[in-house]
């Protein structure tokens, strides 16, 4: 399939925004989720419930909150980030971090029993212990990242609100689909939808291949 340059620009921006958001989300969510999975402290149950709740947060709500924060009349208005790709990254980070943290937590808890004491008795410091168990739980964490990627790139409500769907600036695949639909260009909307599907498929199969290799290696 060949597209006009406009469409490539839109696809490229979608990938850029979501990949950045996932990378930042992983930097925050994986250590946080691993910590939650491995250590107990007062108030942990409440935080776990909050993380699980945030995993199901409606993206539009995230969008509204980020919008209000970044608005010119809001607390972070002076940064002038509203209607920029950065604002979309912020919204998506808020969206995917709880997912990454929650899925890391359960992946880590699954491996915790077997590896915690082994690592500890070999002399792992608390941080080394977290790193070791995260490495052991990597298959589960990767599939969590794939799920988060799919959710972020196919999300429309939040990016529409905080990005603004500005042509050549913040228009991504999902917001372009909405626009084409509203203008009655159903074929164009469908075409973009197929690209979205293809991107999701590529990413998931890429990640699944990784997971599958892990699984095969275990069985060998």
């Amino acid at each position: 399939m060949l597209f006009p340059p406009d469409v490539w620009e839109i696809i490229w921006l979608s990938l850029k925004v979501t990949t950045t958001a996932i990378a930042i989300g992983m930097l925050i969510g994986i250590p946080f989720g691993a910590f939650l999975g491995l250590y107990s402290f007062p108030g942990k149950r409440l935080i776990v419930v909050l993380v699980y709740t945030c995993m199901g947060l409606p993206p539009v709500l995230v969008g509204v909150i980020v919008y209000l924060l970044l608005s010119r009349y809001g607390p972070l208005g002076s940064l002038s980030l509203l209607f920029t790709p950065q604002a979309m990254v912020i919204a998506q980070v808020a969206l995917v971090t709880p997912i990454l943290a929650g899925l890391t937590m359960s992946a880590v808890q699954e491996k915790e029993r077997a590896y915690r004491e082994t690592a500890k008795s070999l002399g792992a410091s608390p941080i080394q212990l977290i790193a070791t168990i995260v490495r052991e739980a990597r298959t589960g964490i990767w599939s969590g990242a794939a799920a988060a990627y799919g959710r972020a790139i196919s999300e429309v409500g939040a990016v529409m609100l905080v990005g603004g769907n500005i042509e050549h600036h913040t228009r991504v695949m999902t917001t372009a689909i909405i626009l084409e639909t509203r203008m009655g260009n159903f074929p164009a909307a469908l075409q973009l939808g197929l690209v979205l599907l293809a991107v999701s498929f590529l990413f998931n199969s890429f990640l699944m291949v990784g997971a599958l290799n892990q699984w095969k290696a275990k069985r060998r």
Binding site: T118, K120, L122, S125, L129
Partner: peptide, 23 residues
């Protein structure tokens, strides 16, 4: 605590009945 006990822990070796091998 884990962190405080680390210098002591690092002078011991431990082998369990069913060892967990890292992948």
């Amino acid at each position: 605590t884990h962190a405080k006990g680390l210098p002591i822990q690092r002078q011991m070796g431990f082998v369990a009945q069913k060892p967990a091998m890292f992948h």
